[in-house]
Nucleic acid binder design. Structure first.
Length: 833
RNA sequence: GCCGGGGUGGCGGAAUUGGCAGACGCGGCGGACUCAAAAUCCGCAGGGGAUCCCUCCCCGUGUGGGUUCAAAUCCCACCCCCGGCACCA
């Protein structure tokens, strides 16, 4: 008897995991009558063990998935492994273990961890991105993209992490440091492969409109910002006494009459020639190399002074015919626009600061409408709008109109054209590493760069490599890999030894998951179209611009290559907050890591899941609390005890009177149906499971009270209790599935509660005939009154004025007004006589 | 600097078409059970004051104003915290 009331998660959790598994109840059906729902959580990198961030991510997803299954959806809820990447290689360097072995072992272990948490995945769909059967399709996409000029090779100045010994994309540089290891990034000139994401910049921006409903606003703004579209004028000014021209981009063509100098980036290809025209090659060269040195050594971080050097040469501003000096300046970015700018110190703060420093004239050409600006009294640039002055034929125009007029004027006179610029740059995907998908290209001395023929795919990663972390990448040092024959001419040739950025794998894995039958193809198109787009995607905010932007881009590319007809991969996105402890992110170096295994061992998976869902709403950061975990464990113990007690009571209730439920039991039913309403609501809207769980706790408290104080005397009573327990277990199942299954079985439930039908509430049972509403006098709470639910204003007022405390406040006062909001409040306004 | 998000008891958090602020949980206090403790169960609890066992009053959602019968919620100004971007021409 005693044991029966003891909750022992270790006795039940594995049992149910096995039963679910052998019954295959979480399999997504490729063909089904039911409505389909694709629920995806970001798949993990197999780093060794799962951490609390994973538990949070996957517990949120699992609760939702289980709810949807109970709601009658055919739910696709897959899991797999983002298995390529640097840590595998670093582990190899440190311990001499092969990355594949290391990765596979980690996957084995982490899979068991996920299974021990009882997640409802369709494990048949599991794969790892390091499987040649996966990455070979990526190689195919790469080749098809080559044909469409969506991928190309060029030499460029790249971000290079000396520690990881590899190139980083712009998005992977955080504050000048490597996003993964934190080492300061260097600039190197290297050849590499690029994906033409800029060709999709506009579409990526425009189709964001479809995502407005389902994505957090801040993710969209971050992407918008990242793409950084701006419109303006691209023009060129001739360099005096030469044939040279300097191209520049500006968003402020309306200020073009205020140009008093030009500035070029340090790396601008014309720096040398221009300074030769000006006769100041030496000075310029010295300045350039000194500034570049500073940049690399990081001396220019925060308080960077704007510095520059006069090249001795002048540009002619064709609109004014004036000569303006050309500078080379450290604040001009080579990566943006054309690497050169027109400078208008009166109307651009940066130009203003530079002009002050080098005593360059400042000319006012935009006059604001409020307090007029005085050219000789400017303390800072005026970057706002106004009307044009000192601007020839354009003087007097509004700046917005002038932008347009000046662009058109330039176009008519062949000086420039309307142009759009993006902050977004093409995606450099070459990595000088071993543990990644090989780029399927062969270099032939005669035929040049030749794609590997499709029938020769996959280009497999060789296993017998030596990984030292020093010198060239292991593939480059592997003759059997490098040396091959040219597919065109058959002569000796060399393979590309760069591998692809691992963000390429994660840019289409959701398509592979959606397809169960992948014989000789990346995925089954029909199956993919049945599921895509992902209805709900869940993952960390840290991928707001990296993974989420690449995946959007890749989806569009695959559409244009004819693989799919989907344009956006993720309809709705939930970005969950971090799990923190002692106010900081869990990290080994901080020593504040809580290991999921420990928690599961001590309290069971259900406690871990419920705690992590209960402690905070999903998008907010979650502070880990040992005491909170204990509290949740107690809750589950109470669930165990109360349900068992009530079950005994129901089974033991013989010789009952036929009849309606008693008052207490009617009240219980009301609580039950209210709870169904509230919990269901959370699943259908915000996924704030902390609130759903608190409602379940209220219901349990009620059940406990009933168990302690009430006797079942009628069949109606028994029905009410039975309904309450049944509904409670069903609603608990998405959060704490193991205990719910066990109790479901013990209380005589049929089949698995995990796929039982989600309860539906009955509105008429929730409604009360008599309700209490608060009564205010002059806006201050003075009591409450019980009134019939359909009472009118007058009736409510008459009843309220009999409440002694209310009466006291009305005494001797004149009643000015009575405000009655049915079901909410009664407010009596009085005034002293 | 710019763009987002946020500021509610000792703590995590509820309450957003304006309508009883603090649900639920943690921690705390008191009680029951026990030889005792743990566990469990029951009860109390925003702050201050008056009253003296019946209660009653005032104050309270970052700060200061405003709109309203009524504001955590709406408007204006400001402060602080977190995240992102940061010479993007």
């Amino acid at each position: 008897m005693k044991e029966k009331f003891e909750y022992r998660p270790e006795d039940i959790e594995q049992k149910w995991q096995q039963r679910w598994d052998s019954a295959g109840i979480f399999h997504a059906e490729p063909v089904s009558e039911k409505p389909c729902f694709y629920l995806l959580e970001m798949f993990p990198y197999p780093s060794g063990r799962i951490h609390m961030g994973h538990v949070r991510n996957y517990s949120i997803g699992d609760a939702y998935a289980r709810f949807l299954m109970m709601k009658g959806y055919n739910v696709l809820h897959p899991m797999g492994w983002d298995a390529f990447g640097l840590p595998a290689e670093n582990a190899a360097i440190a311990h001499g273990e092969h990355p594949r072995v290391w990765t596979e072992r980690n996957i084995e272990y982490m899979r068991e961890q996920l299974k021990s948490l009882g997640y409802s995945y369709d494990w048949r769909r599991e794969f790892a991105t390091c499987d040649p059967e996966y990455y070979r399709w990526e190689q195919e996409f790469f080749i098809k993209m080559m044909e469409k000029d969506l991928v190309y090779r060029k030499e460029s100045l790249v971000n290079f992490c000396p520690d990881c010994n590899t190139v980083l994309a712009n998005e992977q540089v955080e504050g000048g440091c490597c996003w993964r290891c934190g080492t300061e990034v260097e600039f190197r000139r290297l050849p590499g492969w690029f994906m033409r994401i800029t060709r999709y910049a506009d579409e990526l921006l425009e189709s964001m409109e479809e995502l407005r409903e389902g994505w957090p606003e801040r993710v969209l703004t971050m992407q918008e910002h990242w793409i950084g579209k701006s419109e303006g004028l691209e023009a060129e000014f001739p360099v005096a006494d030469s044939d040279l021209k300097i191209r520049f981009f500006t968003t402020r063509p309306d200020t073009i009459f205020g140009v008093t100098f030009m500035a070029m980036a340090l790396e601008h290809p014309l720096v040398e020639e221009v300074s030769r025209v000006g006769g100041k090659e030496k000075e310029v060269q010295r300045f350039v190399s000194e500034s570049l040195r500073k940049r690399v050594s990081g001396e220019m971080d925060e308080a960077l002074e704007k510095e520059g050097v006069f090249t001795g040469a002048y540009c002619i501003n064709p609109l004014t015919g004036e000569r303006v000096p050309i500078y080379v300046a450290n604040f001009v970015l080579m990566e943006y626009g054309t690497g050169a700018i027109m400078c208008v110190p009166a109307h651009d703060q940066r130009d203003f600061e530079f002009a002050r420093r080098y005593r360059i004239p400042i000319r006012l050409v935009i006059q604001r409408k409020s307090e007029p600006l005085r050219e000789d009294k400017l303390e800072e640039a005026w970057e706002g709008g106004g009307y044009l002055v000192n601007s020839g034929r354009f003087s007097g125009m509004e700046s917005e109109a002038a932008k347009d007029a000046i662009i058109r004027y330039c176009e008519e006179n062949n000086m420039g054209k309307r142009a759009v610029n993006y902050r977004l740059k093409d995606w450099g995907i070459s990595r000088q590493r071993y543990w990644g998908a090989p780029i399927p290209v062969i270099y032939c001395d005669d035929c040049g760069t030749v794609p590997v023929p499709l029938e020769q795919l996959p280009v497999k990663l060789p296993d017998n490599v030596e990984i030292t972390g020093k010198g060239r990448s292991p593939l480059a040092a592997h003759p059997e890999f490098v040396n091959t024959t040219c597919p065109r001419c058959g002569r000796a040739a060399r393979r590309e030894t760069d591998t692809m950025d691992t963000f390429v794998e994660s840019s289409w894995y959701f398509l592979r998951f959606a397809s169960l039958n992948n014989e000789n193809r990346p995925f089954d198109t029909d199956e993919v179209h049945r599921w895509m787009p992902v209805d709900q995607y869940i993952g960390g905010i840290e991928h707001a611009v990296l993974h989420l932007l690449y995946a959007r881009f890749f989806t569009k590319v695959l559409r244009d290559l004819g693989y799919i007809n989907v344009s956006e991969p993720f309809k709705r996105l939930l970005t969950q907050g971090m799990v923190i402890k002692d106010g900081a992110k869990m990290s080994k170096s901080r020593g504040n890591v809580v290991d999921p295994d420990d928690i599961i061992k001590r309290y069971g998976a259900d406690t871990a899941r419920v705690f992590i869902l209960f402690a905070a709403p999903p998008e907010r950061d979650l502070e880990w609390s040992e005491a909170g975990v204990e509290g949740v464990y107690r809750f589950l113990q109470r669930v165990w005890r109360v349900v068992n007690v009530l079950n005994d009571r129901v089974l033991g209730s013989i010789n009952l009177e036929e009849g309606e439920a008693g008052k207490e039991f009617v009240n219980l039913r009301r609580t039950v149906h209210k709870t169904i309403k509230e919990v269901t609501e959370e699943f259908l809207t915000r996924l704030h499971f902390n609130k759903a769980l608190s409602h379940l706790m209220v219901l349990l408290n009620e059940l406990n009270r009933i168990a302690e104080t009430q006797k079942i005397t009628t069949t109606g009573d028994r029905e009410a209790v039975h309904e309450a327990v049944e509904c409670f277990l069903k609603m608990l199942a998405p959060f704490a599935p193991h205990i719910a299954e066990e109790l479901w079985e013990r209380t005589g439930g049929k089949g698995f509660v995990s796929i039982a039908e989600w309860p539906v509430y009955n509105e008429s049972l929730i409604k009360e005939e008599v309700i209490k509403i608060p009564v205010q006098v002059n806006g201050k709470l003075r009591g409450e009154v019980e009134i019939p639910v359909n009472a009118g204003k007058d009736e409510a007022f008459e009843m309220a004025r009999t409440v002694p405390r209310v009466q006291r406040h009305l005494d001797g006062k004149e009643i000015v007004k009575v405000i009655f909001v049915p079901g909410k409040i009664l407010n009596i306004i009085v005034k002293s006589q």
